[in-house]
C-alpha cells in the first residue's frame, strides 16, 4: 500500500546505477547514430521498475486519501526540521518537473519493445544522400527520444 521508496543509506559515497536510473541515462542520453540504433527486445521485468509512479488518477487519489487518513494527528507537533530548512525557500524558482512520468516510461518501453521485429539494416549507406532532415526513412523506433513532457497530472489548485 505504501508508495515510499526504499531508502538507500550509503551516503558517504555514491552507489552504482540501478535499473530505475537507466531511464534517465543510457536509454535517454548519450551519443546516438540513429541508423545504427537497434534494440531488439526488453525483458518484461523492465515494466516493473517504476511501478510506483505519480499519475493523476482516481487510484492515486484514493491512495493519498487512505494514507492521510491513517495519520494519527494526536502526535502532531513533532514535524519540525524540514519546515525550517524549506521555509525560507518555499515556492522558489525551481519548478518541479513532475509530470506524467508513466507516459514517458511506457512510451520508452513501447519504443524498445516495438523495435524488435523488423531487423533489416541495409539502409545504412543510402542515407548519406542529401537529407536535410535527420530522419532516415526506416528509422527504428528504438531511438529512445526524450518523452514529451506532458501534464498528465491534473493541476487542481496547484
Amino acid at each position: 500500500m505504501t508508495v515510499m521508496q526504499q531508502p538507500n543509506r550509503y551516503l558517504d559515497r555514491p552507489a552504482p546505477s540501478s535499473l530505475a536510473d537507466v531511464i534517465d541515462t543510457i536509454l535517454d542520453k548519450g551519443l546516438v547514430i540513429d541508423i545504427y540504433v537497434r534494440v531488439s527486445l526488453v525483458g518484461i521485468e523492465l515494466l516493473t521498475i517504476d511501478a510506483r509512479i505519480v499519475i493523476a488518477s482516481v487510484d492515486t487519489y484514493l491512495r493519498f486519501a487512505t494514507a492521510v487518513n491513517r495519520l494519527d494527528l494526536t502526535e502532531v507537533g513533532d514535524s519540525q526540521g524540514l519546515p525550517e530548512l524549506v521555509g525560507s525557500l518555499t515556492s522558489g524558482g525551481a519548478k518541479s518537473k513532475t509530470s506524467g512520468a508513466i507516459d514517458g516510461v511506457k512510451e520508452k518501453l513501447g519504443e524498445l519493445l516495438g523495435g524488435g521485429d523488423d531487423e533489416e539494416d541495409d539502409q545504412d549507406d543510402e542515407d548519406e544522400d542529401e537529407q536535410e532532415e535527420p530522419q532516415p526513412r526506416a528509422r527504428k523506433k528504438t531511438a529512445a527520444r526524450r518523452p514529451q513532457k506532458r501534464a498528465a497530472r491534473s493541476r487542481s489548485g496547484g
Binding site: Y61, F64, A65, A67, V68, V86, L89, A94, K95
Partner: peptide, 29 residues
Amino acid sequence: DTSGQVRLGEAVSAALESLRSGAAHLVIE
C-alpha cells in the same frame, strides 16, 4: 464517501506538489 475521498486525495496531491517544488528548490540550491 468515495467521491469525497477522491477529492481529498486530489487536494493532498496538489498540496504535495507545492511542497515538492519548495523542497526541490532547496536540494538544487
